[in-house]
């Protein structure tokens, strides 16, 4: 079981690394989005400073939304998913490795470089720690919550727009707690982090199973 898990994880990582479109797309989209905020605010540095954290979160949301489309698409289209199903390979492994690799290649770079992005947007460096942790607890939820929705839209006509439309309402709580968490971090209150962790732990238990059910349905 564990051997199989690492086998699949390795396969997914390789898949991301070999397909340079996939691995660079999310992070470059993030940077591109980030560029928009300073440009739209004109020369008002004050405004930029105030909204730096929100901007980074919004860009993280967008890059996650965009990259969700490719989550199960390839496996579904080329029939590998069907092979897995027929051969009784535990779908829990497939779903979890997909989720982990998606997080590693879309959100982890964002989390890692978030202090730099903050300076880039002339935010105050006091927030860097708070932003780092809020992204660390928040972005796995993007991948987890997005997973069942990406599975739902498999085989739908006009999948990309539909996926974005469906997932934004579900991402709202994450982004709300994430942005608020940074603000209250400096005041010494961690309640939003606790909430994010709570949602995360519930999601890890429930959502993979729902995703598995949906994937099985999508093969019918």
């Amino acid at each position: 079981m564990i051997k199989l898990f690492f086998l699949f994880l390795l396969k997914d990582f390789k898949n991301y690394l070999l397909d340079s479109n996939k691995s660079w797309f999310a992070i470059s989209f993030f940077l591109l989005c980030l560029l928009i905020f300073p440009l739209t605010y004109g020369s008002s540095v004050d405004l930029l400073k105030k909204t730096a954290i929100a901007s980074i979160w919004i860009c993280a949301l967008f890059s996650n939304l965009i990259s969700l489309e490719s989550l199960f698409k390839e496996d579904y289209q080329n029939g590998v998913l069907l092979q897995y199903r027929i051969n009784n390979i535990p779908f829990f492994i497939i779903v979890m490795t997909k989720c982990i690799s998606h997080w590693v290649f879309t959100s982890l770079p964002i989390i890692f470089f978030s202090p730099i992005f903050l300076i880039f947007l002339s935010g105050s460096s006091n927030d860097a720690m708070g932003l780092f942790f809020s992204l660390l607890f928040g972005t796995p939820l993007f991948s987890l919550v997005g997973m069942p929705i990406a599975a739902l839209t498999l085989g739908a006509s006009a999948r990309g727009p539909l996926l974005i439309f469906l997932s934004i309402p579900f991402f709202l709580p994450i982004i709300i707690f994430g942005v608020l968490g940074v603000n209250s971090f400096n005041n010494g209150s961690y309640s939003e982090y606790y909430l994010l962790c709570a949602i995360l732990s519930i999601s890890i238990v429930i959502l993979p199973y729902i995703t598995i059910k949906i994937l099985w349905e999508s093969l019918k």
């Binding site: 390789k14 898949n15 397909d19 390839e74 080329n78 029939g79 590998v80 069907l82 092979q83």
Partner: peptide
């Protein structure tokens, strides 16, 4: 099972 879709990853 061998089907119409071969079940191969393009990058492998």
């Amino acid at each position: 099972y061998v089907g119409h879709r071969n079940g191969l990853y393009d990058t492998q």
